[in-house]
Design a protein around this nucleic acid. Sequence first.
DNA 1: CAGCATCCCGCCGGATACTG
DNA 2: CAGTATCCGGCGGGATGCTG
Lengths: 121, 121
Amino acid sequence: MKSKINFAETENCPVRNILDRFGDKWSTLVILILGEEKTLRFNEIQKKIGSVSQKMLAVTLKKLEADGLVSRKVYPQVPPKVEYTLTNLGLSLLPKLQNLVKWANENMEEITGNRVARQIK
Amino acid sequence: MKSKINFAETENCPVRNILDRFGDKWSTLVILILGEEKTLRFNEIQKKIGSVSQKMLAVTLKKLEADGLVSRKVYPQVPPKVEYTLTNLGLSLLPKLQNLVKWANENMEEITGNRVARQIK
DNA sequence: CAGCATCCCGCCGGATACTG
DNA sequence: CAGTATCCGGCGGGATGCTG
């Protein structure tokens, strides 16, 4: 029998913590993209996502860097060049996210179908 | 070599779709709780989460029901009684989310430590 | 090129009150 | 008990402009 999780206490609940961090719009996307490409520059990530604003990408990357999921390497040159890579911690999260993507790929059609069938926006 | 994902097109990108649906504050939490308890009434879910408002729980459950992840059974009696259970589709998602929880449990301390060490809010 | 600063709008979601 | 209805404040996040 598994021990149950205390969802009620925000501070001690890992589920809440993880959702607070990766529930935002771009974090998981960035991790998945860096997982595919190993190393990317700021603009390259932005182009890959396509619809993210410069501001939000900067905020997201800073958060991920602070969490220790992404490492940032600055080349002291003009024009500047900054490369982003997943850390080992980030790499350990990657497969879990990829599992979610896999599930999404396999089941999104059914979910979309359900929505349409029930005529919900 | 894995085929790459097109993150740019929102409509066809399963990652974006899944994040749009489960990136919200409560959906994953509800799925995880129902995964533990099998069947729960509205008030029981609310008590388990603790901090969710009545409104948001109702909205969340309705969304999950529309997606076909949660089933809703109404007992025609007074006072009313409604039970929520994961569907097979919901059950298929459950282990992926539990993997994330497991990862969070194992690594949240390190992440929190990173944050503190870098003195970010 | 890689960002920070500022302004500002939309909507997420909380509080409260009401119904079957 | 299990919801809807309404109001409304906060902030996520887009647009734009400026810097090293």
